[in-house]
Design a protein around this nucleic acid. Structure first.
Lengths: 142, 142
DNA sequence: TTAAATTATGTTATATTATAACGTTTTCGA
DNA sequence: TCGAAAACGTTATAATATAACATAATTTAA
């Protein structure tokens, strides 16, 4: 959370009470969390909360790189390294729902390489690998 | 289209008129196409077309690997190699909207490797790289 | 070959996710 | 402290997707 404050300071961005609260809620969840889940929680705290309330906060947090959107789940998760620019790459467990953010140089290079060969300029990368995490495999899921 | 028929034959799957038509419509589009776009076209042909009409056909086609779903666009595109099992990997142009399916061994290996190292068993892979295609870059987009 | 089972489709309704549009309040810098 | 910009409130609606149950078509098997 402190690093979020710092980051906003550096960029002249305003981490308002609402935005901070949404970021907290995302971090509190140990799984990717949907916009309407966040909204349900916010409604207990601010009687006026509506979809734009949460989507605007999410847009802000996404823009700054403080959270990632997981496309295959329509859900959001805190970024584990918001201060470094990096692609969004996740291992997503179909059983427990956990999403582990990963950084892998081979993967980065492979994508950079193939895009380059194709003459394609890269703006954004999405890698979402669905399967079963080590923990759930132990419980018998394969 | 013939290869779709063949594939269904092999698997004992029923490529009905509706499913065949949806597949045709997807192939006719030179860009990823949304479910409701398909529905609008179908409505001109079958007065009864409703969302489940198209979503069920899409589910069937996805299951067989005849089409891919592009998560970041909520849209669907024909698979260029439906007879071989392969991950879903795309270069998506933010300008013209084209999505090029790619196959890259380095990428496959990178994902297999990192999943393995993490003890994660892979069920499904999504790679969606957004940017600008060579064609649009020539037109001045970067 | 026909009855039962399965699969596919029709139909109505609704759930889920996301944004448009406009007004008000707050914040910030000149 | 005033004017502009940014953030937020509020209402409405758009876009995407599925639930649930009825009917029709097809396959299986007795």
């Amino acid at each position: 959370m402190q690093s979020a404050v710092d980051l906003c300071g550096q960029r002249g961005a305003r981490l308002t009470a609402l935005r901070r609260r949404v970021l907290e809620l995302i971090w509190k969840s140990h799984k990717p969390v949907g916009a309407y889940e966040l909204l349900d929680i916010l409604k207990n705290e601010r009687r006026n909360a509506q979809p734009p309330t949460v989507y605007r906060a999410l847009d802000f947090l996404l823009e700054l790189g403080l959270v990632h959107r997981i496309e295959s789940l329509n859900a959001f998760i805190g970024c584990c390294a918001p201060d470094t620019a990096h692609p969004s790459q996740f291992l997503i467990c179909r059983d427990c729902g956990a999403a582990a953010e990963i950084t892998d140089n081979r993967l980065d290079k492979a994508i950079a390489g193939l895009a380059d060969e194709a003459g394609f300029s890269v703006l954004h990368r999405i890698v979402e690998v669905a399967g079963h995490c080590p923990n759930c495999r132990e419980q018998g899921y394969e």
